[in-house]
Computed example of a mutant assay.
Amino acid sequence: MHWKILSEPFPINTWKWYRLRGIGFGLFVFLFLLLFQPFSLNLFDTKKLLYVTIVYGAATSIVILCGGWVFSKWIIPRLDDEKWTLGRQIVWNLLLMIGITLLNVYVTQIMHQTVLPLWWWLIMLKWVLMLGVLPVAVAELIAYNQHLRYNLKAATQLSQLVQQQTIISDGGFNITSTSGNLANQNLTTSLPDGNSAIILMGDNQGEKLELLHDNLLAVQALDNYVNVFWEADDQLQSTLLRNTLTNIAEQVSDAVYMYRTHRSWLVNVQRVSRVDGNAQGLKLSVELMDQQVPVSRGNIPGYRKLTELQHQAN
């Protein structure tokens, strides 16, 4: 294996993914212990064997579910998901395995009403790592390749559409939003005149930015502020406003072409010049901007649909 692959971008898993993984690994541990009976489990009668294997399987599920919940609810919002890599994903899985070891040893001490020596903890850790490291590493590599192939294919198809279409100055088309990612939540709407003005308001008194619809390129969330990227005389401009991305999305709700591609980005799909892909999702090159705009995995279908509808409207 080329070790450089460990530094490749990797999508951050959702709570739904951890639920499935927790149940799946718990079932795997239960069946493995029941069928192969290590740790002298073959000495137990059927009733006790079932009880012990169910307890260990449940302990495994509990650690993964609790770890996944904490990761999804508390860690992910504080992470820069663009810096999450395959290597970090594997390390996080190793931490979960250590947690599984600790809980399983604790459960063993309770069931046998004893205090186990350190060497027993190390033996348990060895078994957990033997059972988990290879399957997890293989599973993550397979997932990485699947995400990469899918996103590269999507990027190629969308780039072809982007290169063919021109800026829409008037007219309209229908959009059906199922994920709630569009800045405009109406099911049917029409594009505003590209020469009409739009006003973005900040929370500070008198803070506002007035520009043409077509000149708004993208908006990035930065903690309690948003960075608005816009065009003036063929030059890139940026303005910092104190506001949230959600509020800005509401302010441009009449602009169907503004799409929430990521929790931190709102982009004018009409100004996208190129689409690239990696395992995490898509990367949009926007006219005049050096910084690429990410499209998270869950938002790819919506972006694809909007781009295809825009192409059809042309």
Rank of each mutant, 00 (worst) to 15 (best):
I12W: 07
W15R: 11
G26Y: 01
G26R: 01
V29M: 13
L35H: 03
Q37W: 07
S40H: 14
T46L: 06
K48Q: 07
K48Y: 05
A59Q: 00
I62G: 01
W74M: 13
I75H: 06
I76S: 05
R78A: 02
D80S: 11
D81R: 14
W84N: 00
G87V: 01
W92I: 13
N93I: 10
I100M: 15
N104C: 11
Y106I: 08
T108P: 01
L116S: 06
M124G: 06
A143I: 05
N151K: 02
A154D: 10
A154L: 15
A155C: 05
Q157W: 14
Q160P: 02
Q165H: 11
Q165T: 11
Q165P: 02
S169C: 13
N174G: 07
N184D: 11
T188S: 14
S190C: 15
S190K: 14
P192N: 00
P192S: 00
I198A: 00
L200H: 04
L200S: 09
D203M: 14
E207C: 13
K208N: 15
L212G: 09
D214V: 15
A221I: 12
N224T: 09
A232K: 12
A232V: 06
Q235H: 07
D254A: 14
M258A: 08
R263V: 04
W265V: 10
W265A: 08
V267L: 05
V267A: 06
V269E: 03
V269A: 07
S273R: 12
L288E: 04
Q292K: 10
P294G: 05
G298M: 08
I300G: 00
K305G: 03
T307R: 10
